[in-house]
């Protein structure tokens, strides 16, 4: 199966629930609503055998725009068929259903996205900070983040 067949079949199966698809860009991707994601993920893994979640990128698009989550999913064979799935969520309530039961590696990906960008993955079994200290405040990769002046009494900012 090549990429155009994959896109064609996805469009057939999900119809208007695929908001936007970009087949020939630098990052071939489809855009969906968060509610569609568990079903699409299940279908990608079971019907198209894309068994490898390569990366989960979170992007802060700014206050008015919201947060983007981009999943890069791939099939682990010599042809490496791949697709990216974009999901946009509002800034104040960034909730996406978890896919850790579909790809186990999503567990740590999602914890990282929660830690650095403040996504909330509904149904994740252990959504706690992974990189920053447990009592860290704020989500550092948000564009409006200000790093704390002191941390436990030690001065943190120099300039």
């Amino acid at each position: 199966m090549d990429r155009s067949t994959l896109f064609e079949k996805l469009r057939q199966k999900f119809g208007p629930r695929i908001i936007e698809s970009d087949e020939n860009g630098l990052v071939p991707s489809v855009r969906i609503e968060p509610a569609t994601w568990p079903e699409l993920a299940q279908s990608l893994r079971d019907d198209f055998r894309l068994d490898y979640l390569s990366c989960l990128t979170g992007i802060d698009r700014g206050k008015g725009q919201g947060l983007d989550a981009i999943y890069h999913v791939e099939r682990m064979d010599a042809a490496r068929l791949s697709i990216s799935v974009r999901i946009r969520v509002p800034y104040e309530n960034p909730v996406i259903p978890t896919v850790e039961h579909i790809w186990r590696t999503a567990d740590w990906h999602e914890r990282e996205a929660y830690d650095l960008l403040g996504f909330r993955f509904e149904g994740h079994h252990n959504l706690v900070r992974i990189l920053c200290a447990e009592d860290w405040e704020g989500h550092p990769l948000r564009k409006d983040y200000k790093s704390p002046d002191t941390y436990h009494g030690v001065r943190n900012n120099v300039v």
Binding site: D51, Y52, L53, S54, M76, W103, R104, T105
Partner: peptide, 9 residues
């Protein structure tokens, strides 16, 4: 096992 390896990326 290889399938576990892929599952965990």
């Amino acid at each position: 096992r290889p399938e576990t390896a892929i599952q965990y990326g």
